[in-house]
Amino acid sequence: MRAALSTLSRNSATLALRRPLHASTPLPNHTITPTTARTISTTVPRREAPNVTARDTLLPQTHYDFFPSLGSDALPPKGPFTLDLSLLRKEFLQLQAKAHPDLAPQEKKRQAEALSARINEAYKTLQNPLLRAQYLLEMRGVDVAGDETAKVEDPELLMEVLETREVIEEAASEEELQPLRELNERRIAASVGVLEDAFQKDDTAAAKEEAVKLRYWINIRETVDAFEPGKPVVMIH
């Protein structure tokens, strides 16, 4: 298994860090589905596309509008795709403290509960690079989260995912998965870098393609985090 992991690591590093950015092509359906397995999914509920130009209204219209520290030009391509997550969390906690329903008078509790829920959703989305990318693509009319046909047409990547699943299934302990965990975090970082460049250029096709790839890497992270020896693994993308 160590030899297989070593080969996987070399192939994965080359794939994640050196593959050039190119426009997306229609992605065929590809499913990895053992019959009995735990299911881990990384998707968000489908929502109506928010109004990108609504900063002049009194109530926040996009997730970015809730966080004044992001600035008036926070949305890509004017703003960066990557965010200061520590600052975002600090401001989130301040917002929730002010908007807590227990602090509202009885006649305004429902409004306060709705606002608190919206703040939670905004923070959950923006602090996660995959959910953030999917949200920004929704704003451009591309539903990656709800599109079950959005798969990567790349035999090398798909083989890598299959080999990764085998490594996880054969592991006897969490310690054996540490090299895979570190490798996968490098994959995620590489994908975030590609998304940064794609959104800066407002290249929706490239951003969609990389968001689909990132969904594989995030799914692997969640599968490793939920690892239990002897349990079969299925990765839903």
Rank of each mutant, 00 (worst) to 15 (best):
R19C: 00
P68K: 15
D197G: 11
E160R: 14
P105H: 02
P50Q: 10
P26H: 05
A23L: 12
T223S: 11
T14G: 07
D143W: 03
L162V: 10
H22L: 12
E182S: 13
N184Q: 14
D197S: 15
T25V: 13
E166N: 10
L85A: 02
E169H: 06
Q111K: 07
F227A: 03
R19H: 10
A150D: 03
N219Y: 00
Y216A: 06
E222Y: 04
S116Q: 12
P232K: 12
R140I: 06
E138H: 03
P26G: 05
N120S: 12
I218W: 02
L58D: 12
R2K: 14
G79F: 11
H22D: 10
E210S: 14
G79Q: 11
S72R: 15
Q61F: 00
A37H: 10
E185A: 13
A49R: 08
A190C: 04
Y135K: 05
T36N: 10
D102F: 09
L214T: 07
K213G: 06
Q134D: 11
T31F: 06
A114W: 00
G193L: 08
Q111A: 06
T53I: 00
E48M: 12
S12K: 01
L214S: 09
K78S: 11
E107W: 05
H30Q: 11
N29R: 13
K201Q: 15
L126N: 04
P76N: 06
A114C: 00
S12N: 11
A13K: 13
L58M: 08
D225S: 13
Q200V: 07
E222C: 05
E163K: 08
N11C: 03
P26A: 09
R140K: 14
T125M: 05
E138C: 01
Q61E: 15
Q134M: 15
A3V: 09
T62F: 09
L158V: 09
T25N: 02
P28F: 02
I188P: 02
E113I: 05
A99S: 15
L180C: 00
P60F: 11
S116I: 00
R140L: 08
L8Y: 04
P155L: 01
Q94R: 14
P28W: 02
T204D: 04
L21R: 12
S24I: 08
L83Q: 03
E182D: 13
T42S: 12
V152T: 14
V152F: 04
D225C: 05
E138K: 03
A114S: 11
I218S: 09
A145K: 06
L177D: 01
R165W: 00
R118F: 00
K201E: 13
D65A: 15
R55C: 08
H100Y: 09
Q94W: 02
E138A: 03
P20G: 09
S9N: 07
P101V: 07
L103R: 15
D202N: 15
T125W: 00
Q127P: 01
E209N: 04
